[in-house]
Each structure stands twice: as C-alpha cells, then as structure tokens.
Amino acid sequence: MCIWLDECPVQEYEQDLYAMLLFLKERIAYQQADHKGECPVPTDTKTGLIPGHTAYAVTKWRYRTTTALVGVCVVSLCLMRAGVPQSWFTDTLVAVMAVYCFTLIVLVWWADARSSAEKRAGYTTIRLGDKQLLQRDPYMGRTIRLAGGEYLSRKEFGDIVAATKAEASRKSVLSR
C-alpha cells in the first residue's frame, strides 16, 4: 500500500488519474499552508508570475471603472440640477451607476487580493507597490526594479509596460 502518491507505481492508463491526484494533493497542502499564513504562492515557470491577472491589470480596470462611475455621476448631477424630470433615461443612469458601483466593489476586493498574492510570492507589478519587493513587468514577468530600489518614473514604467505588452501579444499570436 502506498502512503504517498509519489511512491505509487502507475500504469499507463492510470496516468491521468495519478496526475489529478497529485494536483489535489498539492492543492490541499497549499490550502493548509495558506490557513497557517506560510503559503508559498505557486508561480508560472515561464514568466515567474502567479497564475491569473496581475495586480497591475486589475488595478487598471479599477481606475477605468472609477472614471466611468464618476462620469455617470457627473452627468446625473447635471441632469438633476437642470431640472430634468425622471424618465427612462434617468432610471437607466441610476441602474448604470448601480452596476458600476457593484463592479467597483468587486474590483477593489480583487485588486487587493491579487496584490496580497503577489506580495506573498515576493514581487509586485504595481508601479508604486511595496518598495521592499522586486518589481516585475505585468505582462512578461521580467524584473524591472530590484527590491529596495528607487521607484520607476511614470514614463519609464509606461515605456516598459508598452514594450512588454506588445511582445506578449506577439508571442500569443505566434503560439496560436
């Protein structure tokens, strides 16, 4: 009888099941370590980034949603000050504001969760993130600032992000 999955002999037809069991074993160990606060975050071997969207991407969506919400609020306030009576249009604006508010709440939570996961992995993708962490570009995962180094200027960071985004999109097109 096998105590650990790693010690079990595997027949060829059982490899898929074996791989799934190894994955589940890893996930259980990961969750147990996470509850203790000592969880090493698994990273992608190609980029060094944790799987999923980066904190940079989610934060960028959060800023865009906030801008759109402020725009809708300004339009609503202007219509209210102008004395426009309630109609289907104003009702639609209120519904749009509600959707934006809900989306913004989710994005604030998600950005914080991604930022915390990156911090546990030992890096940040946010321009003004934790200075004591490595800073990686949000698309290719390359180190762009060493831990403790000075923050990159907005222009430097923007140039790096634009270049790596273009490179990442070229690679994704070529891999199809």
Rank of each mutant, 00 (worst) to 15 (best):
M1N: 13
M1A: 15
C8W: 15
P9T: 09
P9D: 11
V10R: 10
V10I: 15
V10F: 11
Q11W: 10
E12R: 08
E12D: 13
Q15M: 11
Q15F: 10
L17P: 00
M20Q: 13
E26D: 15
R27I: 13
A29C: 08
D34M: 11
D34I: 07
K36C: 10
G37F: 07
G37W: 11
C39Y: 01
V41Q: 12
D44H: 09
D44I: 10
T45H: 11
K46Y: 07
K46T: 07
L49Y: 05
I50K: 08
I50M: 06
H53Q: 11
H53P: 01
H53N: 07
H53A: 10
A55Y: 04
V58R: 12
R62S: 03
Y63Q: 04
T66M: 07
T66H: 04
T67V: 01
L69Y: 09
G71I: 00
V72E: 06
C73S: 07
V75D: 09
L77V: 08
L77T: 06
C78M: 06
L79M: 13
P85L: 08
T90L: 06
V94P: 01
A95R: 06
M97G: 14
A98E: 14
V99G: 08
L104R: 05
L104A: 03
W109H: 09
A111H: 03
D112P: 00
A113L: 14
S115G: 13
E118C: 07
K119W: 07
A121W: 01
G122N: 05
D130I: 00
D137I: 00
D137W: 03
E150L: 00
L152V: 02
F157S: 05
G158N: 10
V161R: 04
A163Q: 15
T164D: 15
K165W: 09
A166E: 14
A168C: 02
S169Y: 08
S172K: 15
S172G: 02
S175D: 10
R176W: 15
